[in-house]
């Protein structure tokens, strides 16, 4: 058993790696949402002057990384690792951004849980003294996700009530071991893949909620903490349906979320007036909300300690068409308030 482990699935970061800066770059629809002014940059057009939406996704990813570095005043030559991923096949947006940034790159795929995955691994690298600073990023694009997982953009299709809308955007964080910081990572719980047999790719929330409940329960058992020990428990992109399911599952498991404050990033990206049904999804959802809302509130001391848990539906169109069920995964990171806190 590793010496920094607490319980079966949770690890502690004794040196509390610091989140030095963060940035979020999002599309126009996200820019009209409630977090509008909190994003670092809102695109006027989802194509972002590129030839294809895949190229746009890559450019957005790169833009977020560059803005994040600029805010921490760290030149890219000093970055010792980029940990990141997206939803494209072969995580091409992150890979192409890494090509342009020319930094050591470890590509990640955790579907929409990628931001938490990168924060956990980044914190390990920093805490263990293997690399600092480390750039962690995750992004997605509505237009590339639609064509890869669903239908062409101009195809006339009715969305079901449980369907979610993929966020166009990337969130990036710079982790380091010294200097001013927004927040620190205290511990993390790495989730296991949970599959309760859902096949409906239009109900991602239901695919991911059991994994979220599993990771939360393990976190509380491993750490001996209770929901009330957190000012806010935040899930990535369960959406309206998924977060209602999670609330019920946690009620059954003996760690009711109502003892704390609970929110889902999927419900704070889009304007409720926009017809997005069950909310937002995608790697960029939790990543951009982390940068635009969670870290600033930790920095100002509004929140002292939060549990940030990004959730992913491990879906592939190929296995889905072959009748395979959709497994979910969720990773949780404990974030503590920044300088002033």
């Amino acid at each position: 058993m590793g010496k920094h482990r607490i319980g079966e699935h949770t690890i502690a970061f004794p040196n509390r790696p610091r989140i030095l800066s963060s940035a979020a770059v999002v599309g126009p629809k996200e820019g009209r949402g409630p977090l509008s002014t909190a994003f670092d940059f809102v695109l006027e057009d989802a194509l972002y002057g590129q030839k294809s939406y895949e190229q746009a996704e890559h450019a957005i990813f790169q833009e977020a990384c560059e803005r994040c570095l600029k805010k921490a005043n760290v030149p890219k030559e000093r970055v010792q690792a980029l940990l990141g991923g997206d939803l494209l096949n072969q995580i091409m947006a992150a890979s192409l951004a890494a090509r342009e940034l020319s930094v050591p790159f470890l590509g990640l795929y955790g579907a929409c849980s990628t931001m938490a995955e990168s924060l956990i691994l980044g914190s390990m690298l920093v805490d263990g003294g293997y690399a600092s600073p480390v750039l962690c990023a995750a992004g997605s694009h509505y237009c590339t996700a639609e064509r890869q997982y669903r239908f062409p953009l101009e195809y006339g299709n009715q969305r079901t009530m449980a369907a979610q809308w993929t966020v166009t955007g990337t969130g990036a964080c710079l982790l380091g071991d010294e200097g001013n910081y927004l927040a620190r990572t205290e511990m993390a719980t790495v989730g296991q893949v949970v599959d309760m047999g859902i096949r409906d790719a239009n109900n991602m929330g239901a695919c991911m909620a059991p994994a979220a409940a599993d990771t939360l329960k393990r976190h509380f058992l491993d750490t001996g903490r209770k929901p009330k020990d957190y000012d806010q428990i935040i899930t990535g992109d369960l959406g309206r349906v998924g977060s209602e399911i999670l609330t019920e599952l946690m009620e059954e498991s003996g760690f009711p979320l109502r003892e704390s404050q609970y929110m889902d990033c999927g419900l704070c990206v889009f304007d409720p007036k926009d017809d997005v049904h069950a909310g937002a999804s995608g790697c960029g959802c939790s990543a951009s909300v982390l940068s635009a809302m969670i870290l600033p509130r930790l920095h100002t001391g509004e929140w002292k300690r939060v549990l940030f848990m990004a959730t992913g539906a491990l879906l592939s169109p190929t296995t889905s068409q072959q009748g395979e069920t959709i497994p979910g995964v969720a990773h949780a990171v404990v974030l503590e308030g920044g300088d002033e806190a």
């Binding site: 009530m161 349906v241 019920e248």
Partner: peptide
């Protein structure tokens, strides 16, 4: 779980 999902999905 399927029943729970069915109940909570609009």
């Amino acid at each position: 779980y399927m029943e729970l999902v069915k109940r909570l999905t609009p």
